[in-house]
Computed example of a mutant assay.
Amino acid sequence: MIAALLAASLHAAALDAPAKCSPIPGAEDLWRDDVRYVFVGETHGTTEAPAAFGELVCAALEQGPVTVSVEYPVQMQPMLDAFMAADSDTAARAALAAYKYGPFVHHDGRGSSAMLDLLLRIRAMAKAGEDVTLVASVPDSPRAEGFSQSYSEMDRAVLWGRQAMARPQARVMVLVGRVHAEKMRRVGSPLGLPAAAHIRPEETVSLSVAYQGGEAWTCRDECGATPILVTDAGEARGVVLASQQDGKFDGLFALGPVTASAPIRP
């Protein structure tokens, strides 16, 4: 069922039209008044995760304004602003391509066809009058010499906090690599405290996209489709709120087996 819903939203994105929300089972549990931030931690380079995140944004907009925070460098914000403001999708795509160092040039899954479809859908929502903004969330934070803590994680949290303060009426929806969405300290890791863990836990819900098999487009020794392990219950679907990985996540975002989404140049 999830796959069919996502296919419908992708089709609407291809038609440059804001799709109606396709219900995600369990998503209604996310919209509590005390939840200010919703994090979705993904493996970059799948078709399903960005599309499903778009459905969550659509559902969140039925509750009120939304700030969508994506894992792109802050230097790319002027291009994202131009993308959202462009008069046509052709001009919008050109705005993304104008940043020479972004994910749509140096691909790691954040410059995939599925990510472009997500951005186009958010843009279509805004053009249709929805109260949604698009912001970048990767700070320019070099490692501080002599410190074991990665301060880029703290700086990400600062950016998310500023994004929340800039629109105090809006819920902040964050699509980010899985590790940054964790809410517990990584013992023995130079990462230290992941970004989401710097924010008051009672104000956040962090979901891990379930490992239910399939493939993701990754670049390690070589670029291409890479198998996804099966470590979560294969039959689960939708938002499942139950503590995961000893408290690292508040729940799963279960999409079933995923497919790889290859890089695309806008």
Rank of each mutant, 00 (worst) to 15 (best):
I2E: 03
I2K: 03
A3K: 11
A4F: 04
S9G: 09
H11L: 13
A13F: 04
A13C: 09
A13I: 04
L15P: 02
L15W: 04
L15K: 05
D16H: 09
D16R: 12
A17R: 13
A19T: 01
C21I: 03
C21Q: 03
S22W: 00
P23R: 10
D29T: 05
L30F: 04
W31R: 05
V35A: 01
Y37E: 00
Y37W: 12
H44R: 10
G45M: 01
T47V: 12
A51N: 07
E55S: 11
A59D: 05
A59S: 07
G64P: 02
V68C: 02
S69V: 06
E71F: 07
P73E: 04
Q75G: 12
M76T: 07
Q77G: 05
M79H: 13
L80G: 00
L80C: 11
D87Y: 07
D89L: 08
D89A: 12
A91H: 09
R93Y: 02
A94L: 12
A98P: 04
K100E: 11
Y101P: 01
P103V: 12
V105Y: 01
H107Y: 13
D108H: 14
G109R: 01
G109K: 01
G109S: 04
R110F: 10
G111P: 03
D117E: 15
L120Q: 12
R121S: 12
R121H: 11
I122T: 02
A126I: 13
A128Y: 03
V132W: 00
T133E: 02
V138W: 03
P139T: 03
S141Q: 05
S141Y: 00
P142Y: 02
P142K: 15
G146A: 06
Q149V: 12
S150M: 11
Y151D: 06
M154Q: 09
V158F: 06
V158Q: 05
V158C: 06
L159M: 10
W160V: 07
W160L: 14
G161Q: 08
R162F: 02
Q163L: 13
A164D: 04
A166Q: 11
A166N: 06
P168E: 11
M173R: 09
V174L: 11
V176R: 07
R178L: 09
R178T: 09
V179S: 10
H180G: 00
E182R: 08
E182Q: 10
V187A: 13
V187Q: 01
P194T: 04
A195C: 09
A196Q: 00
A197E: 00
I199C: 05
I199P: 01
R200N: 15
E203H: 12
T204N: 04
S208G: 14
G214S: 03
E215S: 15
A216R: 07
C219V: 14
L229Y: 10
T231Y: 11
A233D: 15
E235L: 15
G238C: 15
L241G: 07
A242K: 08
D246V: 04
D250Y: 03
L252P: 02
T259I: 08
A260Y: 00
P263C: 14
I264H: 05
P266D: 05
